[in-house]
Design a protein around this nucleic acid. Structure first.
Lengths: 233, 233
DNA sequence: ACCTGAACACCGTTCAAGT
DNA sequence: ACCTGAACACCGTTCAAGT
């Protein structure tokens, strides 16, 4: 009666699937971060003994790799492929804005694909590059050379990654840069320009705000446009 | 005689400094990565008992934070401030190229400031923003408005961070994308554009090569130039 | 004031069973 | 074939001393 709280009895064989474990792992990572996620936490979340996890995933590393696989699939699924006829500039702007939003909405995705050190399967890699191929093909249809198409996409992609990773790190840090204490980070006497920009709320010191992202993206799109027009008669 | 190898006897008091521990920590992190660095490893590298570390740093977190502080100082010291009279475009190009090189030369710096989850002290933050202030002031001298100066710098900075972090993650992953096996990552039948670009060695799938960095940087500088000229008569 | 070994809680992983 | 508790090595951290 007053014994330990009722442990769910032995699970029937076949009742525990890799997918169920992955679901729980994502839930745990959402709470504790991918770094903070322990195998015992996941086991508890599934309601199963720790060792049961190890039958489905031989190492924690395998589990994280599978999570990364799912993360790649989620990201690709969330980003619509280009519709023929869309102006290239409109598409790219939309694409990178969407990409940033997808990662911002779910930190686990960013951790798994951009700030953690596990890779994903060949299958996911194919999925990802198939997606890129579609975008490059779209840009070629718009008149880009294949090389310029790739490089242009790459520039926007890398910039967006920089913004997402920057913001993610700041948040993991509980960095004051993102909070109200950020005026304390400057020394007004020796940093008059930054201080006045910050006071008038026109910049954000972490360089990852909406306005800084938008400026960078526009500058990149402008640069791409210029690169294109100067190469064609 | 056949006993355990001679343990260095007790260290004299005052013989172990925080700096010495930091030196060892950087050495260990250089070998095992910041993630792989354990307090026992550091202690062994200094030739001291594990607990001795804890007198100088109350938690491993404090140690890593101090490492981050030093990393920020190293990065700032490695990047020369702008010389008045230099064309802005030349300076920014040089600055971001240098910045990428500094991080590429020492993975620990990138781990500590850009991919790990520890922040640094207020003092280091001041050092860093003092450096930014100098660059913004230089750009204002070149005719930028303060806001455009900040946003332009921010765009290049974020892009460069994206490249550095991208390359670092790939390397930590031992990703095949960086190696010779990278042709296997594509399916030629369904990815004709990427396949042919890759075969002619004109792109690198990870988007972090010299040529992709250079293209992105030029595109950003072009965009900045256009933004400036269109706003001025 | 500074350095140290013994000890503890916790995590990743393995083993030798259970059904 | 799948699930499980006991056990092990290892790491971060604390404690109660030593000099």
């Amino acid at each position: 009666m007053a014994g330990p709280t009722a442990r769910s009895p032995r699970r029937e064989r076949g009742s525990l699937s890799a997918e169920e474990i992955l679901d729980a792992a994502f839930a745990v990572a959402g709470r504790s971060g991918v770094d903070g996620m322990g195998v015992p936490d996941v086991a508890k979340a599934v309601g199963v003994g720790v060792t049961s996890i190890y039958w489905h995933f031989r190492k924690k590393d395998d589990l994280v790799r599978s999570m990364s696989d799912r993360a790649v699939r989620m990201v690709v699924a969330a980003l619509p492929p280009p519709e023929p006829g869309t102006p290239w500039r409109e598409f790219l702007h939309r694409h990178f804005t969407d990409m940033r939003d997808v990662y911002r909405r779910d930190d686990v995705l960013a951790d798994l694909t951009w700030t953690r050190i596990r890779s994903y399967s060949l299958e996911s890699t194919h999925l990802l590059y198939q997606h890129y191929e579609g975008i490059v093909a779209f840009l070629v249809d718009c008149g880009f050379t294949p090389l310029t198409a790739w490089n242009s996409f790459s520039a926007g992609y890398t910039f967006t990654r920089g913004v997402v990773v920057g913001e993610r790190i700041q948040r993991l840090n509980h960095s004051p840069i993102l909070g109200d204490a950020r005026t304390k980070l400057l020394v007004p006497q020796t940093m008059p320009l930054l201080s006045s920009l910050l006071e008038s709320d026109r910049i954000q010191l972490a360089m990852v705000s909406d306005s800084e992202f938008e400026f960078g993206l526009q500058v990149i799109l402008d640069g791409i446009e210029r690169h294109r027009t100067e190469r064609r008669p």
